[in-house]
């Protein structure tokens, strides 16, 4: 536990120094609030862009606040995922490439402590960034559209966080297997994209798929309920994440060499 805390603190300090603690939340806030604002001004934007004949009536139904939040989460699911994976790709590989990792592994530190401290620290940063973005969006949405009950917002936030729990585990796993940052990011994105693709192609067999988390959050926001499917997807996502982390620890012990 002591090692874990020391390593966790180091990770926090590093993320403060390199600015990750600042730029990531800001970017998530910008991406998030863009959604309600563009939705709100959509009629004007279309009018400007569209060269519509005089007197044409633009009739776009105004979305509900819930719909805006769903659209935001969908943005987070694509751009946000890409951003997060890129923000994580150097987490282990850089220390390996420079060799600084040697100073950690020559001390009585277990691989498990090393990987899990990185995991928890990075996940913490990403979750804070995500929550900041989402809360900001919620505030705007309430203001511009209609009030979305905080319990629904919180529920969708919680369920969606599981996606981040998974993507962090996936990126760290590739981070232990591969050395090259580009490869790590590429493989992680590929893996997550394949998961989504398979889920759309074979919905019957993929009910457990973490990609369904977005459907679950929509359900929570629109219908205000979470059922057994939410539980299934949540549990499977958590299980997969733990599995990937375990695999990362195993492969680190097996593959990672510090010599020369």
């Amino acid at each position: 536990m002591r090692n874990f805390i020391i390593l966790f603190n180091k990770e926090m300090k590093e993320s403060l120094r390199n600015g990750k603690w600042i730029w990531l939340p800001i970017v998530m806030m910008v991406i998030g609030m863009m959604q309600p604002i563009t939705s709100y001004y959509m009629p004007q934007i279309l009018e400007m862009a569209g060269n519509l004949p005089e007197g044409a009536v633009i009739d776009i139904p105004t979305p509900s606040g819930e719909e805006v939040l769903i659209a935001t989460l969908s943005q987070f699911g694509t751009i946000g995922t890409l951003l997060f994976v890129l923000a994580l790709m150097n987490v282990i590989s850089q220390e390996r490439q420079t060799g600084a990792i040697v100073f950690v592994v020559v001390r009585p530190v277990r691989v498990f402590q090393y990987i899990v401290s990185k995991y928890v620290a990075q996940l913490f940063i990403l979750l804070v960034a995500f929550a900041a973005g989402y809360l900001f969006t919620w505030y705007y949405t309430n203001f511009l559209f209609n009030y979305v009950p905080w319990i629904l917002m919180l529920g969708s936030l919680g369920v969606y966080s599981l996606w981040i729990v998974l993507l962090t585990a996936v990126t760290l796993l590739f981070g232990t297997v591969l050395r090259n940052s580009g490869g790590i990011a590429g493989m992680s994105i590929l893996f997550l994209a394949m998961l989504s693709l398979l889920t759309t192609l074979f919905p019957k067999y993929m009910e457990w798929s973490p990609s369904n988390l977005s459907t679950e959050t929509s359900k929570i926001l629109i219908e205000g309920e979470w059922g057994s499917s939410t539980l299934l997807v949540s549990v499977s996502t958590l299980t997969l994440s733990i599995l990937f982390l375990g695999l990362a620890v195993y492969l680190f012990k097996k593959l990672v060499r510090f010599g020369n």
Binding site: M29, M33, M34, I37, Y140, L144
Partner: peptide, 9 residues
Amino acid sequence: LIAPLIGLQ
């Protein structure tokens, strides 16, 4: 409404 957006950027 958009001042915070610009401010953050």
